[in-house]
Computed example of a mutant assay.
Amino acid sequence: MYTIISGTNRLGSNTLKVAMQYQAILQTKGIEAGILSLADLNTYTRNAHFETIENTVLIPTTKYIFISPEYNGSIPGVLKMLFDSCKTHRIWWNKKALISGISSGRAGNLRGNDHLSAILNYLKITVHPNQLPISVIDTLMDETGNITDHNTLKSIHHQLDEFIAWGEDTNNKQGLK
């Protein structure tokens, strides 16, 4: 099971728009993926709703795709709180993750991708090496919030193809074809 995590609680964010585009691209590749928007989840309190999300979304997921915006050179606090509030060993251990950082600046959240990768490795998640930094996101999208830049879309497709294949072919350790 694939889950795309939109790593901010900011309403109307480009992060959720990018997550939705990743979901649509995966669907064209025959992969159904759900989206967990942190705008819809209180990560500060373990309540019944939070535990339902853990049990129905996070625990069954085997491959995560994190779309994380750049917040002060790192990831949003709400994303960090998701990790801190969960039952770590049941949700994160021995799973796989793909990371894409987005920013309106020129670095595409490179530092945030590194921080997120370190956190995920600590949580015993294997992180795919193709971590895509998407820079100047606001100039790459049309008025409906879809990325229209050909090179960015090509990079996303390539990244997702690698992630889908990763671990599928046991004879090919890198999951590349």
Score class of each variant (00 low, 15 high):
residue 1 M to H: 12
residue 2 Y to E: 10
residue 10 R to L: 03
residue 11 L to F: 14
residue 11 L to E: 13
residue 12 G to V: 09
residue 14 N to I: 00
residue 15 T to R: 01
residue 16 L to C: 10
residue 19 A to H: 03
residue 21 Q to N: 01
residue 21 Q to H: 01
residue 22 Y to A: 02
residue 23 Q to C: 02
residue 24 A to V: 00
residue 26 L to E: 01
residue 29 K to A: 04
residue 29 K to S: 04
residue 29 K to C: 04
residue 32 E to A: 08
residue 32 E to L: 06
residue 34 G to K: 10
residue 34 G to N: 12
residue 41 L to F: 04
residue 45 T to F: 09
residue 45 T to V: 15
residue 48 A to H: 11
residue 49 H to P: 00
residue 50 F to S: 00
residue 55 N to K: 13
residue 57 V to D: 06
residue 59 I to Q: 00
residue 60 P to S: 07
residue 62 T to Y: 04
residue 68 S to F: 03
residue 68 S to M: 05
residue 69 P to S: 08
residue 70 E to K: 01
residue 73 G to R: 06
residue 74 S to G: 12
residue 76 P to F: 05
residue 77 G to I: 01
residue 80 K to W: 00
residue 85 S to M: 06
residue 85 S to C: 03
residue 86 C to T: 15
residue 89 H to Q: 10
residue 89 H to L: 12
residue 90 R to Q: 03
residue 90 R to K: 09
residue 91 I to Y: 06
residue 98 L to Y: 02
residue 100 S to W: 00
residue 103 S to C: 04
residue 103 S to P: 05
residue 106 R to F: 07
residue 106 R to L: 08
residue 106 R to C: 04
residue 109 N to L: 08
residue 109 N to V: 09
residue 110 L to T: 15
residue 111 R to Y: 11
residue 111 R to T: 09
residue 114 D to P: 06
residue 119 I to M: 15
residue 119 I to P: 07
residue 119 I to T: 15
residue 119 I to N: 12
residue 120 L to A: 11
residue 121 N to P: 08
residue 124 K to V: 12
residue 125 I to F: 06
residue 125 I to N: 01
residue 125 I to C: 04
residue 127 V to C: 06
residue 134 I to V: 15
residue 137 I to G: 09
residue 143 E to F: 06
residue 143 E to K: 14
residue 146 N to L: 09
residue 146 N to H: 13
residue 148 T to S: 14
residue 150 H to C: 09
residue 153 L to H: 08
residue 156 I to S: 05
residue 157 H to A: 10
residue 157 H to V: 15
residue 159 Q to P: 11
residue 160 L to F: 12
residue 161 D to H: 13
residue 163 F to K: 06
residue 164 I to R: 14
residue 164 I to W: 14
residue 167 G to Q: 04
residue 168 E to T: 14
residue 169 D to H: 15
residue 170 T to I: 14
residue 171 N to K: 09
residue 176 L to K: 15
residue 177 K to N: 13
residue 177 K to C: 13
